[in-house]
């Protein structure tokens, strides 16, 4: 029995705590669980509903096609987009974690709180903007005829880079965009976790002769651990999902860049646009869920073995 089990109250306590959960529970059941029957569409050749067989009766009349809807995800071309999806996600999870934890710690150590506040405000800014807008920012710099960088290259007499037709630069550009947009957000999360830390713990450590970096190592990081782990597990769960807007809008849908910008979501969207097949897109979503589920379960199991308190469930 864990600590806290000693709180008295019994059935009454359980009842009142359960009533707190009710509103969100009803919502979850109606809007998240009820539609889950739709997963079966992954295995059906979807027939349109009509007056005689309204939804969901039409599902019963849709023939079972087994795994046919999944096969378009596993042709020769798809290996590349699977590699891109996993590669970018893995890189960005690690990079994002390191950068935002570092920034949060830096901010918490800045003596002039006004400056810290200013940095935080400014860094959160990109998070407000949609990818479409970000795409236009970038285009303002890289536009082949009017872009600022292109103009500068021209006036310097140097070779002009055809940005939207040259794939080698794009892994870097996409990485910069992703970090640029998301760092402020996760920094705020970590920073508010740091602000929750009892200052006296630092003072106690300082009295014991711990230098500042040692305090970070022994006080701050252990306190951030639950949040780091939770965010990690959740990101790992989304490793097979890509940020559609980033990969679609930011490269301006430029075809020669596909080798480095094609990810699962854009691939599925393009396939969906070309066939209009509901079953196929549901199948792709289902597969993404499945991979995410396995990853999250694995990550959670590992965490539970190492540190039971931090695991997600």
């Amino acid at each position: 029995m864990k600590r806290g089990a000693g709180i008295p109250g019994g059935a009454k306590k359980t009842f009142w705590l359960t009533t707190m959960m009710l509103p969100a529970t009803i919502w979850l059941l109606l809007i998240r669980y009820l539609p889950m029957f739709g997963i079966m569409m992954s295995f059906l050749e979807y027939k349109l509903p009509n007056r005689k067989m309204p939804f969901p009766v039409n599902l019963l009349h849709s023939p079972w096609v087994g795994l046919d809807n999944f096969s378009f995800l596993f042709t020769g071309e798809s290996l590349n987009m699977i590699r891109n999806t996993l590669g970018y996600n893995a890189l960005w999870i690690v990079l994002g974690l390191v950068i935002s934890v570092t920034f949060a710690i830096m901010m918490s150590e800045i003596t002039r709180k006004f400056m810290a506040k200013t940095y935080q405000t400014l860094m959160f800014f990109p998070y407000f903007l949609s990818w479409v807008v970000v795409a236009y920012f970038l285009f303002a710099f890289l536009d082949p005829t009017n872009g600022m960088i292109v103009r500068a290259q021209k006036s310097a007499g140097g070779a002009v880079i055809d940005w939207y037709n040259t794939p080698v630069y794009w892994p870097f550009i996409l990485t910069i965009c992703s970090i640029w947009k998301n760092t402020g957000y996760s920094t705020v999360l970590y920073l508010s976790a740091i602000t929750g830390i009892d200052r006296s713990q630092y003072e106690a450590a300082a009295v014991d002769g711990a230098a500042k970096w040692q305090q970070t190592l022994h006080v701050t990081l252990p306190h951030l651990k639950p949040m780091i782990i939770i965010l990690l597990i959740m990101n790992v769960g989304k490793i097979f999902n890509a940020d559609f807007g980033l990969f679609w809008s930011v490269p301006m849908n430029s075809a020669p860049l596909f080798p480095v910008t094609q990810v699962v979501d854009t691939y599925v969207y393009r396939a969906y646009k070309s066939t209009g097949n509901v079953g196929m897109s549901t199948a792709a979503g289902f597969l993404q869920n499945l991979v995410g589920f396995v990853c999250i379960m694995a990550a959670n199991a590992i965490v539970r073995r190492l540190d039971p308190d931090s695991s997600l469930f």
Binding site: T14, L28, G237
Partner: peptide
């Protein structure tokens, strides 16, 4: 930690982060 149905409700909400019915059933 002393709440009885804690792990059930945890799962109830977190599960929906990974699994969903897809756009069309939700829409309906």
């Amino acid at each position: 930690r002393d709440y009885r149905f804690r792990s059930f409700f945890s799962f109830l909400s977190f599960f929906t982060m990974i699994f969903g019915g897809g756009l069309i059933p939700t829409y309906i």
